[in-house]
Design a protein around this nucleic acid. Structure first.
Length: 555
RNA sequence: GGUCUGUUGGUGAAGUGGUUAACACAUAACCCUCUCAAGGUUACAUUCAUGGGUUCAAACCCCAUACAGACUACCA
């Protein structure tokens, strides 16, 4: 009997050279300090990272880094349909962009670092087969020759009879095949998958612990799940998870909540091998609200904001995306950041208990707010450099202007920046141009003026001309502003707004009206940062030029 | 159909038996101000999906129901 079993196992896995013990020795338990976490990010090589995956990659990374643990990148390419060319490099780049650098795992399309590899599943074939063979030898796995049409048939029957769907109990036909029959079929070159001979009983209850949800009660798994697929002999997710996370000595498995349902399968697998079980954290999915107002999973295909690339295009700083991700990852992060504005986010301690169990709605509004605050904290020169990089990719004309006017541009970005409460008006790199274009003659050519309140040609003329002839002194802000006030008095406008509000009928307007006229003539806009600062940057020559231009346009 | 998860304001959420139900975004008003962006002040859930129950006391515990989502593949 035992010989027969061995013959079957050898037939099923002709290429296995080692036994389990060999791999146990080869990949020993990691020598890390107490409490150090080993986590992993395990995407399919699809070429890019989706927002939801980035969130979990980030959480994995944080969870490991906080404890001086190990974070590694494993590529799950057991489904060849999902793989794309250069799919690994694309993922690596996306991660790198957010400063997520794995300690171990794939570092290019073909290379890896670390002692627990290979880190790409298609190259671990022999390992999976070794472990699966062990199961066969122990009578805990068997070959299944059912065709997909046979499987469909039993499912239909189960549906009609309102029975639980799946390959279990009496529905697991191949389970009762004798060893001789199985050997015969394999020798006949019949295709087969390898299934677990599940020792579970559906009416037994088990309680599994999830780091974010607490204890969850399940029925025991009794499904004879597929372990090894037929055509390519690659493992399914379930089996690869067992072998890889055990051999790579993962301590914390963080994954999407879509995996909760198969939690009992995984637990059973670890149980059967008597492996130390990792801790599990099932993360809520990132959702979005549809046009129809329904809540659904953020979709890679439908939603532009699902791809990491989108934020790059929009010019939202990666740091802001990171901050946003952290605020959804751990609910106490925002408060922490608020009270520790100067600390590096590396100092924030990630906490499984602060992960929200329900999927969070992706809030672009909030992201933009974070981005705005982030940009306001940066130095003008940093803004300049990053903006230059961004425009080189997305707005070449503006990039050229920036390059040719470096000092000038930095000064513009520095308006009201070097203060205790810096100006907050740039939402993103793509938004900066909206706030500064008028400072560059190239963009100022065909402007349209909108003077709003004061729009009588005569009034405008007098204001601009009076300024031009008498008030070009920009030596000091206070001096300058006093002169503006002086001008108000002279022209019949109130220099003091409070006085104006008391008796508006005594004046033609007030100092803000005068400032508006000057501002519009100079920038064409009614809303700009500090007028004095703008004047300083433009200089008297340009002020004259623009006022003259404006006067001509209202003739 | 089965198994499991979730549901606190427009949004993200804190809160696990006694709180005025934090905080942040958004919105609105006012203040400040040469305009704007900010900033400051205030307003914004008599109520925690709904209905019952336990309790002196419930967002928190229990039971039902509703809604949303996931899984139920030789996809992950």
């Amino acid at each position: 009997m035992d010989d027969k079993l061995k013959e079957l196992a050898d037939l099923m896995f002709p290429n296995v050279k080692h036994d389990i013990a060999y791999y146990e020795n080869k990949y020993p338990k990691r020598n890390l300090k107490e409490g150090a976490r080993v986590t992993r990010f395990a995407p399919s090589p699809t070429g890019f990272v989706h927002m939801g995956s980035l969130l979990s990659a980030f959480e994995d990374y944080k969870a490991a880094k906080d404890t001086d643990g190990v974070f590694y990148l494993r590529i799950e390419d057991t489904d060849q349909k999902r793989s794309v060319e250069n799919g690994i490099v694309g993922i690596l780049n996306d991660l790198k962009n957010f400063d997520i650098i794995p300690d171990e795992g794939m570092i290019s399309e073909t290379e890896s670092i670390g002692n627990y590899g290979p880190y790409i599943q298609s190259e671990r074939m022999e390992i999976y087969h070794t472990f699966c063979k062990d199961l066969v030898l122990r009578g805990l796995a068997y070959p299944c020759f059912c065709s997909s049409s046979e499987l469909d048939e039993t499912r239909e029957i189960q549906e009609i009879n309102k029975e639980r769907i799946g390959y279990y109990g009496s529905f697991a036909k191949c389970r009762s095949l004798t060893i001789e029959e199985a050997i015969k079929k394999i020798k006949n070159k019949e295709e087969f998958v390898v299934r677990l001979k599940s020792p579970g009983n559906f009416s037994n209850k088990i309680v599994l612990h999830d780091e974010v949800r607490g204890d969850i009660e399940f029925p025991e798994n009794d499904l004879d799940v597929v372990l090894i697929k037929s055509t390519d002999k690659l493992p399914t997710y379930h089996f690869a998870h067992l072998v890889d996370d055990h051999l790579m000595r993962t301590t914390h498995v963080m994954r999407g909540e879509e995996w909760i349902a198969s939690f009992p399968i995984h637990d059973q697998l670890f149980e059967i091998f008597n492996f130390e079980k990792p801790k599990y954290a099932h993360l809520g999915l990132v959702m979005k609200i549809d046009e129809e107002g329904t809540r659904r999973k953020l979709s890679k295909r439908k939603d532009k904001e699902a791809s990491v690339e989108y934020y790059h295009k929009e010019g939202i700083p990666k740091e802001a995306v990171k901050l946003y991700l952290l605020t959804i990852a751990n609910s106490n992060f925002e408060e922490w950041l608020d009270s520790n504005p100067d600390k590096s986010i590396d100092e924030f301690k990630f906490d499984f208990k602060k992960i929200s169990a329900s999927g969070s709605l992706f809030d672009v509004q909030k992201l933009l707010n974070i981005s705005k605050n982030y940009l306001s904290r940066q130095k003008a020169s940093t803004i300049y450099n990053n903006l230059l990089t961004w425009t080189k990719e997305f707005d070449l004309e503006f990039a050229n202007i920036l390059e040719n006017n470096k000092d000038y541009a930095i000064k513009i970005f520095n308006i009201e920046r070097d203060t205790l409460k810096p100006r907050k008006d740039y939402l993103s790199y793509s938004d900066i141009k909206n706030h500064v274009w008028y400072m560059f003659d190239k963009y100022f050519k065909n402007v349209v003026y909108d003077f709003q309140k004061i729009n009588q040609k005569e009034d405008l003329k007098i204001i601009l001309e009076t300024y031009l002839t008498n008030y070009l002194d920009l030596s000091d802000k206070e001096v300058w502003f006093n002169k503006i006030k002086e001008m108000c008095d002279k022209l019949g406008y109130a220099s003091n707004i409070k006085e104006y509000k008391k008796n508006p009928e005594l004046f033609k307007g007030n100092v803000s009206d005068i400032a508006t006229v000057l501002r519009v003539a100079l920038t064409s806009k009614t809303n700009t940062p500090d007028l004095y600062e703008i004047m300083i940057l433009l200089g008297n020559l340009k002020i004259k030029e623009r006022f003259t231009k404006c006067l001509e346009s209202i003739k």
